[in-house]
Structure formats: C-alpha cells, structure tokens
Design a protein around this nucleic acid. Structure first.
Lengths: 228, 228
DNA sequence: TCCAAAGCGAGAGCGGCGCTCTCTTTTCGG
DNA sequence: CCGAAAAGAGAGCGCCGCTCTCGCTTTGGA
C-alpha cells in the first residue's frame, strides 16, 4: 500500500517526511517555541509558502511531531518491557519507568512538547490519543500480568471514589479490581512529575544522584499500585 | 522605605507595577507564549521602546512574573496550612496539597509559567530560588511538626541512596531522619505531576471526579513521607 | 490522446513580534 | 542654575505566521 499511486503522490510523501525530519531537528536543537516554518523551509531550499501545501499551519506540523513523540516514548517503554523478560513485577515496572526517564533525558524538547505546557490555544486532536496511551498501556499491562502471580494488595478506597474507580476500571482495566485504577492513574501522573521536575530543572541543587533517586521513587510507585 | 525619594522614583515604581499588572493580565488571558511587550505597551498607552526602560527584555519581564507566581502559590500553601490549625499531619498535608491544586486551577497560565516547560534558552536566575522554595518549605514543615508527635515510619533506603539522603537532609531537613529527605522530594515532584496532568489535559476522559481523586492521591503522598 | 482540473512552487506582501538607535523633553542633584 | 541622567517617541532591522496570486507540471477522465 505504500507503493506509489503516482510520482506526485510519492513525492508528496517524501517531502512531507523531509519537512517533519527537519522540523524534528530544529525542535531537538532549540525547542518548540523556536521552531519556525520559515526556517524549516529555508533549510529545505523551499520558499516558506510552499510548506503550507503540506501543513496548513504551524500547529498542524507540531501535531505531527507530537504524535511521533508519543509513539517514540511509547515504543521505548514497550521495548524496555520486552527486554525485562520475566523479571518480577516490581522490577518490570521500574525498568519501564527508567526507560521513559531515559527517553525524556535524551529527547527533552520532545518530552516538553507532549508532557509540558500545552501550546496556547492548541487543543490536541483525537488523533493523538492512541499514541498518547501507549506508555500507560504498558504500565497497566505490568499490573495485569502481576495479577496472574501474587495478588495485588491495595488499601481500601474512600467511599467517594468507589464509583469513580469502577468507571475507570471499566474504561481501561476491566479485568482488574477497581481499586487499582485510581492508583494506576495516580502513579502514571506521578511518574511524569518526577521526570518533569528533573528535566525542567526543579531538582537543580536538590537531587544529585538522580538515577538512584529515580529508581527508588519508581519502586515506591510500583508498591503504590499494589505490586510487590 | 517605600516613601518617595523623588517624583521620578515614585513614578518609576508605579509604571513598573502597571507594566507587571498588564503583563499578568495578558498572561492570564492568553498564556506566556502570547505575552508581547508591544501589546502591553499599547494597552498602557506607551510606545514599545519605552517599556525597555523598565524591563531590558521580554525574559526579564517574565522573570518578574515568575517570581510573583512562586510567591502567590507559596502564599496559598502557607495560608492553607495556617487555616488547617492543629489538624492531624495527614490532614494538614492534604489540605496544603489541595490548596496548591486549587491555586493552579485558578491560575493555569501562571502555573505553566513556573512548573511547565521552561522558556527556551531561559535560565531562571538565582533570584527565583527563595520564592520557588516556599511550597516545599511548607511541606517540609508539616513533616517536621509531625515528628514531634508520632514518629515517622519509612521503609529503609537502598544502599546507593544513603549518602545522597544524608546530603539532602543536611541541606533542607537537618532535624529529620535522612530517609525522609528523598521521600519528601519525590512526593513534592509527584504532587506537581498530579496537578500538571490534570491542568494540562492528560486526565481528559480519564479522571472525572477530580477532587476526590486528588484528595485520595494526596493522602497517599502523605503516607509516602511517613505521615500517619 | 487531449484538456480541464488539481497540485505545486515562487514571489510579494500584510501585520505582528523583539529589540536597537537616535533624538527630544523632563527631571534631578550638586 | 546647569550639566547629567532618566524617560518617552519614533523610525527601523530582521524575524515570524500566514495569504494570495501567478505560472508551471502532473494527472486522470472523456
């Protein structure tokens, strides 16, 4: 299906990819705020208006980069899980967390693009949802697999969360006890709190041994979702 | 000391404040990325170049807003702690977390300014440090006070974190057991992970009962630092 | 096979941005 | 009172996102 329908169609695919590649380069070098369509076009030897044949606006180009970034970090998580083999659940969880952190440190501007301040006035189209979910699905999978082994052990939920927990579980963890759903979501958000603080400089002069610190925190997150 | 040295000095203070106020208005309305010196000047009836007499660059204006934002959220946390009176430590911790969240929901763009993606190429001057520390100091204080009551109970640290924990504790929690320091830092980062995810839309279609969800997560964070 | 339609690149241009420089007016302190 | 410092105005530089028009090329159906 990727075979050409026509020379023009093939060219379009290639130019689109070239634009994204150059945009990704500039994103990595300078950050999303300094990514400019004109600079991308210049680097590609086109005139800036020609670029609008491929992306109707700067935001659309960013959206493409956002999806790629979600897929990139999702793939990093999935690969790490695969490489973890049959280690115990806590170790699998920790390894995946570390993979996400490593990816973030290697791609700080792409991380910022997806987990940092949203582009003002920009609303992520639904297209991004499947890519965005990949990391979360990996984490959920670890808990799911662990359930086959030793049971999960979680504190009871407050009454005002029971209905919500059941709704959540029905959405994305229907084969797990409801109490695990809010714990998972919280751990998921907290994981990115740890990574974001490190990446965005809040740990400056606060945390020095960052690998050890993170690993320890990630293990505690695992316990928080009932792994042991 | 705020009494005028001269009419000019007084005017300078007033104009500086007016610029910050208008900038804050635009920040709240449109976000940091759309905050423009020219628009601020226009709204104030000045020409844009005149504004450079007060702030040498857009980044300097942003720095001023950043410090104000840190102070604002810090004050919110301190006020909440004051109002919590002599509630038990977990409740005090939770109330402070909720106050930070409430502030963030009320001031999303200011939150993004301080806890979101850093301005590209921008390095926060040391000036911001004391203001930035206020929330953290409130949280540390709660744990410190709790230590006077029932003891903290924390799992042992892995060997590769012991030295780091002692260094951390010496820095900002010298009267607490070293093991609490990394737990506190992690909880601090995780708190802002929860808030950031809610604020930046990651909880869209995931968490519905957000107050209850957050309160529960905040209580678990409290347990994570040894409160009970 | 031909031809209208669609795709595409180039160029000029609009309004906005941060920032600089120069010039004039106002104010201040010795 | 007067020289210096501060402040505002205005023009201008090089960016930016985005639009529009104009030709050239490719394409697919009659």
């Amino acid at each position: 299906m990727s075979t050409a329908h026509s020379a023009r169609a093939r060219a379009r695919i290639e130019v689109t990819a070239a634009i994204k590649d150059e945009a990704r380069r500039q994103l990595a070098a300078e950050g999303a705020a300094k990514l400019s369509l004109r600079a991308v076009a210049r680097e590609l030897g086109m005139v800036s208006s020609a670029l609008y044949r491929y992306f109707p606006s700067r935001d659309d180009l960013l959206t493409a980069l956002i999806i790629d970034a979600y897929d990139s970090v999702g793939e990093a998580a999935e690969t790490a899980l695969g490489a973890a083999g049959d280690a115990d659940p806590v170790e699998r969880w920790t390894v995946v967390c570390e993979a996400v952190r490593t990816w973030a440190l290697a791609h700080p501007h792409e991380y910022a693009l997806i987990y940092g301040t949203p582009i003002p006035g920009y609303v992520a189209p639904e297209t991004t949802v499947p890519a965005a979910a990949r990391v979360a699905l990996v984490l959920i999978g670890i808990v799911r697999d662990a359930r086959m082994g030793p049971g999960l052990d979680l504190p009871p939920l407050p009454a005002d969360l029971e209905a919500e927990a059941e709704r959540m579980a029905a959405d994305f963890a229907s084969d797990l006890p409801p109490a695990v759903a809010p714990a998972l979501v919280a751990a998921w958000a907290q994981l990115f709190g740890l990574i974001g603080f490190e990446l965005f400089g809040q740990f400056h002069r606060v945390v020095e041994e960052r690998e050890a610190f993170f690993r320890n925190a990630a293990r505690h997150l695992a316990h928080g979702v009932g792994l042991s």
